[in-house]
Design a protein around this nucleic acid. Sequence first.
DNA 1: CGATTGGTTGAGCCCATTCAACGAATGTGG
DNA 2: CCACATTCGTTGAATGGGCTCAACCAATCG
Lengths: 237, 237
Amino acid sequence: MNLAELKSVCGACGIRELCLPAGLSDEEVHLLDQHVAHRQSVRKGDYLYRMGDPFRSLFAVSHGFFKTVLVHEDGRGQVTGFQMMGELLGLEAIHSERQVCDAIALEDSAVCTISFEQFEELGHLMGNLQHRFNQDLSREIAREHSLMMLLGTMRSEERLSVFLLDLARRHERRHQSGDAFVLRMTREDIGSYLGIKLETVSRLLSRLHDEGVLDVHGRHIRILDRQALAHRGQDSA
Amino acid sequence: MNLAELKSVCGACGIRELCLPAGLSDEEVHLLDQHVAHRQSVRKGDYLYRMGDPFRSLFAVSHGFFKTVLVHEDGRGQVTGFQMMGELLGLEAIHSERQVCDAIALEDSAVCTISFEQFEELGHLMGNLQHRFNQDLSREIAREHSLMMLLGTMRSEERLSVFLLDLARRHERRHQSGDAFVLRMTREDIGSYLGIKLETVSRLLSRLHDEGVLDVHGRHIRILDRQALAHRGQDSA
DNA sequence: CGATTGGTTGAGCCCATTCAACGAATGTGG
DNA sequence: CCACATTCGTTGAATGGGCTCAACCAATCG
């Protein structure tokens, strides 16, 4: 992890409304900036944190892309999420004194580091901030409920379709094309996240490509027929 | 839903240290009691809330047993959790104005109803309460990460074993036997939660019974060999 | 340049599903 | 109180979706 500290710039940040300060006043954002956050870069492949590390801070993805991985005793790993700019990392560790999973940068990235101790104090002063944070935590719980539905009830083709449409939606919220984007993770990462094997991911992408639903060139994806993608697997074959 | 309001009794509650007030002073618990919570009974089979209901309150299970179910547009349902006494319901709805899943009582139960608006105000006054609540939310996120691992990587026999051992652990925390207990949910509920079919659940229970790991009589379970149960599925056959 | 990592595709297999029949327990209405 | 319907659970036989094992190719890297 290469720690290049940069100036704190929540106030001037282009994704401010997608991130922790969403809905805060300029004054409140200034407080957050001054006392809580600073920026730090993370190189592709580096660990932002590892399971067992002491938990002290939350992280907001400033730019780049991360995955979080839960590693079982026996070595099996489960990708529990992918984080894009504006999304928070470390929420799952608040209840503990230690990190409970690994966070790994999938491309050169930067995060805003937020001392959790100071953050709680600030939340105490600013009901607004605390309210937003409760919502962030709750949204993460609801997101994982959806993922449980995916893992518990869906066929592999539907899992992949839901995954791609979710990525598309998140890109669009960030004013990037939802129809054409680059996958930052490997087929194995996707498979782990979706509870299927990497070979199955590869086969499904090939099939959707052959059927004209997607354009797939390695990690470059173009969604050609959203309707078709949205209906994959859930009812008909 | 049969709303019989009872006296609020956090202060005298036997499971206080398992519940929301864990770690609070008597004074703080008194505040919670007075201004925030009241008790309400829910009959077996009744809905505590349904998806789409306005979200106003959190609930703590006072006694009894609940399940939460996420219902997809097409009618498929996914059981996202089972809640025993001391555990919170409604956390996944805070980010929204509406409930995002159903909560159903699996036996005659009672819950403490906590106005979330008032709870947030109280959290603002009591940093301690807010801190604990952040931890509760985070713990729920971490719990769901583990469930993702279960759904994403484990064989059916291991899923069931992990489920039973988790139930055992939770019973023990409540000073009930972890070796002998009664399942409050159907085979179908278990299967939905674990991402397998009810017939598979039934077959697995029968097999573990035949092999002397469990004693199964309908919903009455006795764990005979924890070691064996803990090692099922994960490595050897 | 060989070594490594990531991706694609094929063939055969197996675990869990599907479909089905049946029994037990519970509840309901006449 | 009995006849009947419904819910819940068990077990069997056949099927199939995704896995395993394997070969191969492309890109990247030291």
